[in-house]
Structures are given as C-alpha cells and as structure tokens.
C-alpha cells in the first residue's frame, strides 16, 4: 500500500518568547492511501494546526510533511490542486445559493459540477431540494453536507475534515460517518479530526492527540487491546459520595465518572473482591462489574502517563 500523507518531526509554536505556546511537538505519522484516519483529541490538542499545515495554510517551525507525495512547503501548488479541505467553521459564502457555491468552487478548481457529480451525488441529492436557498439560511446539518460537497467537487485524492461533526446532532453525525465510509470506497484518503471519542471506532486507524503530542497511533481495536488492565464499572445509590471515596483510596489508580457508572482502575494485585469489601459498608445498592474499555478509557489512561 502506498502512503498518502507523511508527517515527520513537525513542530509548531505560537506567540513570542514569554507566552510561547507549543501547538505541535515533534509529530510523526503516516497515512496510507485510501485510509480513513482519525485524529482524536480534546480542544486545544493541536488538531487544527496540524490540518492547516497539511493543507498548506500554515508553515511549520520545523519538520517536513508530504501530501500525495508532494512537500507541503515546496510543492504547495500541487497540493492545493488535489486536496479537499473542510474547516471546522462553516466557511462558504452565506449570500450565495447552494447551487452557486458549488458551481463557484467547481470552477475555481477548473472543473464542473457535472464532471464529478457521481462522487457527490449521494450527499448532494439530500440538499438538492434547497439548491436555490442561500447557504447562510441552511440548517447545521445541511450546511455541512454542502461544505462536504464543495470540498469534494474537484475529486480530491486526500480529504481533510476538521471537526466535521462538532455541534451536529446524533442522527446527522451517524449519517455523516456513513457518507465518509462510502467516500473511502471511492479510494479517497480521508483525514478526520474529532473531539468525540466514540467516533474513533469508526476509523481505520486513529491517532490520539493531547497537548500537541500523539500518544498512540493504531487501529481502534488494537488501542483497546493495548489497554492491558482490568476496568471495573461501579455504581451505587450515592454516586457523588462514591467517587469521593474511590478517589481517596490508595489502592485505586484512577477513577472517573462515565455515563451511569464510575470507571475504576485498581492498582496491581487488587480485584473486585477488594472493592466489594471496601465499599459495601458505606454504600447501598452497590454494583461492581468488569467491562471492556472503550477508546475514551484508553485515552484517559494514556493521559495519565
């Protein structure tokens, strides 16, 4: 398999000496052609900076990166011809209609809507009934479909999606990921960043990012498999009190709320029997069970290192 994107020792800082903020610290990774690659991390992890460097909008302080075999600094003109970029913020012309926006982006890439209609058909067909509506008047989900259509209209070989699902309802999010899967089948390499951990499992491979560092790069399944510890889900009648109690116990390595349970990792050598014994006195309706960790648990665990 060939490589679509390479990133080597990318470093990016903002600000002057005193208030120096390091957005990206020595980032390295490769993305294979045709892969759906997720960059998962909380706000401020450096996802957008990374995307802006790869789409030739921002210059890195040091390090090299290539997209589709072209260097982001020297061959930026080539890259601009063959990447699609959908920024996190809706940035199409709100005073042009859906159709006009799409036609405009098609023409500046020297193509036409008809030429690549097959690629965007699935997506565009959903907003076609509103094609004469101004883009600014569309709903959030529709805006996104339009933005994706515009990013795809020139049949890019690599697609960059910066937090495409932020602020989108659960149904639209699901739909959106379905669309990405179909695009992947067309052979387009997709890099997608998100702050939602649950979306990680939908990617082929994910990079977990935190404070400008990549903590782990692997398939979602492998990341979960690498968790290496037993995770306990604990629930009782007084959840707040339970969390306080767990956090003060020296045998507990980490405890945090997750849904209706608290997730607990015990130090080596302790099992649920210990928890049962320690908590049963002070808690009613105590329920303890071992669960499979998800990406979020892995993230929490990696963050502690």
């Amino acid at each position: 398999m060939s490589i679509a994107v390479t990133v080597k020792n990318i470093l990016k800082t903002y600000g002057k000496k005193k208030e120096l903020v390091t957005a990206l610290q020595d980032i390295n990774f490769d993305v294979k052609t045709g892969e759906l690659f997720g960059i998962i991390g909380p706000d401020g992890a450096g996802k957008t900076s990374l995307f802006r460097i790869l789409t030739t909008l921002l210059l890195a302080d040091s390090g090299t990166a290539t997209v589709d075999g072209f260097d982001v600094v020297t061959d930026y003109k080539q890259i601009r011809k063959r990447v699609g970029y959908m920024p996190g913020k809706f940035s199409l012309y709100p005073d042009l209609t859906v159709q006009e926006n799409l036609a405009f982006f098609a023409t500046i890439f020297n193509t036409s809507i008809d030429e690549n209609y097959d690629l965007i058909k699935d997506i565009y067909i959903q907003i076609e009934p509103f094609k004469d509506r101004k883009a600014g008047k569309l709903s959030g989900g529709m805006k996104q479909k339009l933005a994706l259509s515009c990013a795809l209209i020139h049949r890019p070989s690599v697609l960059f999606l910066d937090e495409p699902t932020t602020g989108v309802d659960a149904v639209s999010r699901k739909e959106f990921w379905e669309m990405l899967k179909r695009l992947k089948e067309q052979g387009i390499t997709i890099l997608v960043s998100t702050a939602y951990m649950d979306e990680a499992s939908l990617c082929d491979r994910v990079a977990l990012m935190q404070d400008g560092n990549i903590m782990s790069i692997d398939t979602p399944a492998q990341i979960v498999a690498n968790f290496g510890r037993t995770l306990w889900a604990v629930r009782s009648g007084n959840m707040l009190h339970l969390l306080d109690e767990l956090n003060t116990m020296k045998e507990v390595e980490n405890a945090y709320p997750s849904g209706t349970f608290h997730h607990v990792i015990l130090k080596k050598g302790y099992t649920d029997a210990f928890l049962q014994q320690a908590l049963s006195e002070t808690n009613n309706n105590l329920e303890i069970k071992a669960i499979r960790p998800n990406i979020e648990d892995c993230f929490m665990q990696l963050m502690r290192r």
Partner: peptide
Amino acid sequence: EIGTIEQINVTPI
C-alpha cells in the same frame, strides 16, 4: 471574518 478566504486559499486559484 467568515473564513471563506481559507477555503479560497486552499484552492489552486
């Protein structure tokens, strides 16, 4: 301000 210039900047225009 509305960010369209970013979108234009990534094109070969």
